[in-house]
Design a protein around this nucleic acid. Structure first.
Lengths: 109, 109
DNA sequence: TTAATATGCAACTTTTTGGTTGCTTAATAT
DNA sequence: ATATTAAGCAACCAAAAAGTTGCATATTAA
């Protein structure tokens, strides 16, 4: 498919997936697929697909118990996102870069 | 379309777009569409589309000069991503949450 | 003024994504 | 043993995304 970091970015790009992830993070115990589904307007299969995407991004891991699959959130992979963003943080507070680019933009004459 | 934060997440979810954004950030001067295109394997129109997506996410702004459009990166919107990630950072270093969920997962008997 | 350049716009194609339904299977409860 | 429940798998669908080509237009250079 695609590289790990892209999988991760894609996983959190979908609002429903962010919501599911959030629900798992704040949950006091692991949630089964059915339990998650009950909190969302989409079908159980829809949830299953989202969970799979989150799992492949490393944001969810699953604890199978009998016929149930208990989903846990794992925030660790978000460290990568944090690192990615952090590089650009040097450019956002001072608008030095903006000014520099502005001054370097060729003008008429 | 969709909410601002989702636009932002979607914008950075595409690897080509991340590359374009990066090229603009590290560039010493603003780059025209043609200049950007020359650095990538996709067509000029493809680049134009990506730039539009980045622009709508607030990550790029454009300085038109005659027939040329000089693109600048703007990292500020990434603060939102940083904030989003930061909330989850409390869950990644201690694996307390993991342990808790593990203990709360129903077991046989 | 004519040629070349930089770009936008529109239409179109392909692939991916987010979602669905139907059916099967395995585990549990009655 | 039988019914119920939890879930996977496969096929399908519609919309969005990523990319293309062709053409029009405005600016600039020769």
């Amino acid at each position: 498919m695609q590289d790990k970091i892209t999988k991760l970015f894609k996983a959190i790009a979908d609002p429903t997936r962010r919501d599911i992830f959030h629900a798992l993070v704040i949950a006091t115990s692991a949630l089964s697929i059915t339990q998650i589904s009950s909190q969302f307007d989409i079908s159980r299969q829809g949830v299953t697909k989202h969970i799979k995407t989150l799992e492949e991004a490393g944001l969810v891991y699953i604890n199978t118990n009998g016929r149930e699959r208990f989903c846990n959130a794992n925030a660790k992979p978000l460290k990568e996102v944090s690192k990615w963003v952090q590089f650009y943080s040097q450019f956002w507070d001072n608008s030095l870069q903006d000014l520099e680019n502005y001054l370097n933009t060729p003008k008429n004459g």
